[in-house]
Design a protein around this nucleic acid. Structure first.
Lengths: 158, 158
DNA sequence: GATAATAGTTATAATTTTGTAACCATTATT
DNA sequence: AATAATGGTTACAAAATTATAACTATTATC
């Protein structure tokens, strides 16, 4: 039990450690190449993964205050990248989903993101890359599983 | 070779996908509990790991424009968390390192960061936690290795 | 020794993100 | 039907981050 807690702490420390590195790799490289802010890019990513999200859902996924979600989505709609869908059953709810243009744009964003990363990672041998693939997938799946469970409780009015 | 490229792309996608989740887990929870901004916390983290960094070094690690590094460090010095050291050999260079108070503070920050994460992750069984530990460590080490190699080239004047 | 390059700072502005309060429309509760 | 709760928006302010240009001090180069 003690050992288990130590391992959890190490996981937390390792993951916290890589956040600024990942931000540098993926976000910074994009800033000059697109007129979308990091959060709008995350929004596209969340929509690409979940297909359809409510406004609150987006806020929860990205930990963004609800009023700001409106602004983000407004921006994306102005660019023609997402669209609103109303729920027949509950007319308060608004679903957001990617348009075709949005899907294409996100695909392109992903390509640009991957491009530089590929050069960096390809200095490693095949085994290492494969292990990185497995590890990153495992962490992604586990975090997604975790994320489903917890309500942020963040930012009042969210 | 094709397979390898596909795997690299997946790694990039997986890692990009977890960034907002990690930000939510580690950063958002801290905001109310400390008067330090995310970037100053990252700075403490980088200093805790590297022991000693130049101003430019900090900027490179966090992809922060050099002028802003000055502001971040000024803030940390005002809080008594870091100190400047001049290099005898080259008097242009200023090293930054944690003070004792800085070490203690960062330890406490890490504790707070871990606390909530522990509750989330502990719903999983021992094997899964152990695997998360191994995967996170592997990714951390690989990214650190990668990070050493690449110069950001980001932000003019950095 | 003059010139260029490097490390860091000052000053300033724009953009992005975060935080709050008040509000409308719709649905749920009583 | 009145009241409360939910989902979303509007309006506004504050904080954090990013971006530039111009500058000082020091070291490297020619």
């Amino acid at each position: 039990m003690e050992k288990q807690n130590n391992e959890i702490d190490s996981v937390a420390e390792n993951l916290a450690h890589i956040v600024p590195i990942l931000k540098r790799i993926f976000i910074k490289g994009l800033r000059t190449k697109t007129n979308l802010s990091p959060q709008t890019l995350y929004t596209l990513g969340a929509l690409s993964y979940h297909k359809k999200l409510t406004m609150s859902g987006i806020g929860n996924h990205l930990s963004v205050p609800k009023p700001h979600v409106t602004a983000l989505v407004d921006k994306l709609i102005a660019e023609g990248l997402v669209e609103r869908l109303s729920d027949e059953r509950d007319r308060r709810i608004i679903y957001i989903q990617l348009t075709e243009k949005g899907k294409d744009t996100f695909k392109e964003v992903k390509r640009m993101m991957t491009e530089s990363f590929r050069a960096e990672l390809s200095i490693f041998d095949e085994d290492k890359i494969h292990k990185m693939y497995e590890c990153s997938r495992y962490i992604r799946e586990t975090l997604d599983e975790m994320a489903k469970s917890f309500q942020t409780g963040c930012c009042s009015g969210n």
